Every structure is written in structure tokens, then in C-alpha cells.
Amino acid sequence: MPLRDISDLEKLKKINAALVNRVERAMDQQGNAFSLFQTAISLENRVRTRTEELHATLRRLERSNIDLVAAKETAELANLSKTRFLAAASHDVLQPLNAAHLSVSALAEVQTGEEGKKLVRQVERSLETMEDLLRTLLDISKLDAGVVQPEIGDVNLETLFSSLRSDFLPEAQKKGLSLKFRPVNVVVRSDRTLLRRILQNILSNALRYTRSGGVLVGTR
């Protein structure tokens, strides 16, 4: 074979190899593109599925919120009805306690033995504790129901303490306790009647459960 023919053959081989290489690269690129296309389709399907699940969850949450709001409104109405009932029936609620106080007082008059008198005093203390708790509950119910509206104004604590001292000193002396109020020159903004009621409850409990020594009242 002539040298020229051999040279042309080598050129043809190189050209053929280059063409084959180009075709293979093109096929690889097409394969990669198809793979990317399949991945995109899969991701789109997954996103669509997750979106539908999210919408379903949101709808369930909306229904739950509606149910919660309805339950809350029902509970508030029930609580308001209970509060209004307690506020309106305060006299009827306390009436049995008043009758019990009268019965215990009558029983105390006929008791001659020390043991019987001791039992009567225990019953009296129990009735007083129950009455204080009920009165506090009724006061709160009246406030919640709007039956009692706080009248906010200036309250001189020195004057209020002086009044409380006059009310509770005989009870303290009867139990052999001291009752002291620290000097105070303070004016606060509050409802005088309600504040007095709160302090009365505190002092009453303090004297009732203090066995010896005394009670000291002050402010900071």
C-alpha cells in the first residue's frame, strides 16, 4: 500500500475516533438530562404530596381551633352562670350557718362540764372558719358577676389600721395575745370596703391560729 494511502487511513481512523467520542459524550449528556428530568418529576410529586398533607393538617387545626373556641365560650358561660347564682344566693348560702351559730350558742348556755364547753368552742371555731371561707368566696363571686363594683379612691392606712385595732383587740385580749400595729403614714389607691374585708380575713385567721405571743401588723 502506498504511504499516502496509509496516511489517509490514519487520518480516517482519527476522524472516526473523534466522531465516536463526540457521539458518546452526546449520549452521556442526554442520559444525564433525562436523569435530571426524572429527578425533577419525582421532587415535584413529593412536593405536591407534602403540600396536600400540609393543607389537610391545617384544615384539621382550623376545625380543632373552632371546637376549642366553642368549648371555651361554653365554659365561660357556665362559669358566669355559677358566679351569678352564688352572688344572688349569698343570703341563702349563709343562712344555714347562721342557724348553726344560734344552735351552738344555745348549746353553750346549757353546758356545765369543761369537756362539753371545750367541744362547743371547737365547733364555734369550725363554723367561723367555714363562714369566713364562704364570705370570701361570695365576695369574689360578686366581683366576677359585676354585682359589686370596686370604688377606687384614696385610703389612709393609719385610719384603717386604727379601726381594725379597735375591732380585733378585744378578741386578742380574750385569747391572751398581743395585737400591735406599726405606725404608718401611707395613703394607697384601693376600694376601702374590699381592702378592709381582706385585712379582716387576714387578722381573723392570724388570731385564730396563733396560740401564744401576738400578732404584728405593718406595711412595707
Rank of each mutant, 00 (worst) to 15 (best):
L3A: 14
R4K: 10
R4F: 14
D5Y: 12
D5E: 13
D8I: 01
D8C: 01
L9P: 00
E10F: 05
E10A: 14
K11V: 04
K11N: 12
L12I: 10
K13I: 12
I15C: 06
A17C: 02
L19H: 05
V23F: 09
A26T: 06
Q29Y: 01
Q30I: 06
G31M: 02
N32A: 08
N32I: 02
F34G: 04
F34V: 07
S35G: 10
Q38H: 02
L43H: 10
R50H: 02
T51K: 02
E52D: 13
E53V: 05
E53T: 03
H55W: 13
A56K: 04
A56T: 07
T57Y: 08
T57R: 12
L58M: 10
R59C: 04
R60E: 15
L61F: 11
L61W: 05
E62L: 13
R63Q: 14
S64Y: 11
N65A: 12
N65H: 14
I66Q: 14
L68D: 06
L68Q: 10
V69L: 15
K72G: 09
T74W: 02
A75E: 13
L77K: 15
N79C: 03
D92S: 03
D92N: 03
P96K: 00
L97C: 09
N98C: 01
A99W: 07
L102Y: 15
S103D: 08
S103M: 06
V104N: 02
L107F: 09
V110Q: 07
V110P: 01
T112K: 08
E114N: 05
K117P: 00
R121S: 15
V123C: 13
R125G: 08
L127A: 06
E128I: 10
E128G: 11
E131V: 11
E131W: 08
D132I: 04
D132R: 14
D132G: 15
D132L: 12
L133K: 11
R135W: 01
L137A: 15
L137C: 12
L137Q: 13
L138M: 05
D139L: 15
I140T: 08
S141A: 15
L143E: 09
A145G: 15
A145S: 15
V148I: 13
Q149S: 10
I152Y: 04
I152C: 01
G153C: 09
G153T: 14
G153I: 06
N156C: 05
N156L: 07
T159I: 07
L160K: 04
L160Q: 07
D167K: 06
D167R: 05
L169W: 03
E171R: 11
E171D: 11
A172V: 06
Q173D: 12
Q173E: 15
K174M: 12
K175L: 13
K175G: 10
K180E: 14
P183Y: 00
P183C: 00
N185Y: 09
V187L: 04
V187P: 01
R189F: 06
S190G: 06
R192Y: 04
L194E: 02
L194S: 04
I198G: 01
L199C: 13
L199M: 14
Q200V: 04
N201C: 02
L203E: 04
A206L: 02
S212T: 11
S212Y: 02
G213V: 02
G213S: 01
G213K: 01
V215M: 01
V217R: 00
V217P: 03
V217A: 02
R220T: 09
